[in-house]
């Protein structure tokens, strides 16, 4: 659906050039909810705007719905944009106009007959659950309602792709959740492919099936949400995953662990879905000469699956710890040793 290959984009930032994108490739398949996460300035905003031609790469190619953007005339690009909806962090609505006016604008631009516009506006407003606000002025609405109008406007022309530019970053947590659920509904019921950028890992966790982590104009890591959350390789990914899944030893326990004089090893365990069939922790506890303490445990739901994270303190001689590790690996859990420090 969206294929970006080796995109490079450099902005003239006055004193020094800003490398927004350094050789970025991205492949979004039809039906995906693809999330790009990164700190501000990572280049995600530029990457998103390549898809509808608001930015053009210095080199590299952008192919959307089979069309190579660099080969399109200006007219053809405008036509393609009508098939790509876009939702913004600051909503970017006409504040002084009614909800109906805002939602009907893209249809008017496309030259849709008046009667059809009315009908379509009502349809999308019903979809975003704002049918009773048709005649309200945007300035009278709450942030969440405004974003629903923004989504309705983006959906008016029945696009195949929806681009979300930090769509929930200006909203409170509860509203964020309701907007994310709405986006999921857009994806499921309308079959719209969604590409979103965010700096909130919760957004990725809640609705995305694929994720790319961006840093310094490059994609540091990408893959299915479960694999990236389960086995983050890069430091930046770990930092993001940590914002939703706590894999650190709680500060309070750290001193206890450090003051332990016996031979010990702290292990981080991750269970994804029902990959582990046996009662692993119980089995570890039954091992002779091994003491097991649970320092931390969290359970996260994502992608219709469950990921559990345990931090275990194993106390025993090296041989016992090695056996315990074999048991854990054999059971199918993801395991890594944690450094405790002095």
């Amino acid at each position: 659906m969206i294929r970006i290959d080796h995109a490079v984009k450099t902005f003239d930032g006055g004193t020094q050039a800003v490398h927004a994108l350094r050789d970025v490739s991205l492949h979004v398949e039809k039906g995906d909810i693809y999330g790009i996460v990164g700190f501000s300035g990572a280049g995600k905003s530029t990457l998103l705007r390549l898809v509808n031609g608001l930015e053009t790469p210095d080199s590299g190619s952008v192919v959307v719905a089979g069309e190579d953007l660099s080969k399109l005339s200006h007219r053809e690009l405008l036509t393609l944009r009508r098939k790509i909806g876009m939702v913004f962090q600051q909503f970017n609505l006409l504040e002084g106009k009614t909800v109906r006016h805002n939602v009907s604008i893209p249809l008017q631009l496309a030259g849709v007959p008046k009667k059809e516009i009315e009908q379509r506006v009502r349809e999308v407003l019903r979809f975003v659950e704002l049918e009773d606000k048709e005649n309200a002025y945007v300035s009278q609405l709450s942030g969440g309602q405004k974003q629903r109008v923004g989504i309705a406007r983006a959906l008016a022309t029945s696009p195949d792709i929806l681009l979300c530019d930090e769509a929930t970053s200006a909203l409170d947590p509860q509203t964020t959740e309701s907007i994310l659920l709405l986006l999921k509904k857009v994806n499921r019921e309308m079959g719209v492919t969604i590409l979103l950028i965010t700096h909130q890992m919760q957004v990725i966790q809640m609705i995305c099936n694929k994720v790319a982590v961006m840093e310094y104009g490059k994609i540091a890591e990408e893959g299915s949400v479960l694999s990236v959350f389960g086995t983050p390789r890069e430091e930046v990914t770990r930092r993001f995953v940590r914002t939703v899944i706590n894999d650190q030893i709680p500060e309070k326990f750290l001193s206890v662990v450090r003051s332990e004089t016996r031979n010990q090893q702290v292990e981080l365990l991750k269970f994804i879905g029902d990959s582990v069939k046996e009662p692993l922790i119980a089995n570890l506890c039954r091992m002779e000469g091994l003491e097991v303490n649970i320092l931390g445990a969290t359970i996260q739901e994502m992608q219709g699956s469950v990921m559990s994270v345990f931090i275990l303190q194993l106390i025993g001689d090296d041989e016992k710890i090695r056996l315990a590790e074999e048991k854990i690996d054999g059971a199918g859990a993801l395991r890594e040793r944690m450094a405790v420090g002095a």
Binding site: T79, R81, L93, I105, L109
Partner: peptide, 25 residues
């Protein structure tokens, strides 16, 4: 707001449409 203009561009509005329907109003 530059954001409103960007939204207009993202909708596929021509420059003339942006002036008449977004910028001036």
């Amino acid at each position: 707001s530059p954001g409103v203009i960007e939204a207009a561009q993202a909708m596929g509005a021509t420059t003339f449409q942006i002036i008449i329907r977004f910028l001036l109003p």
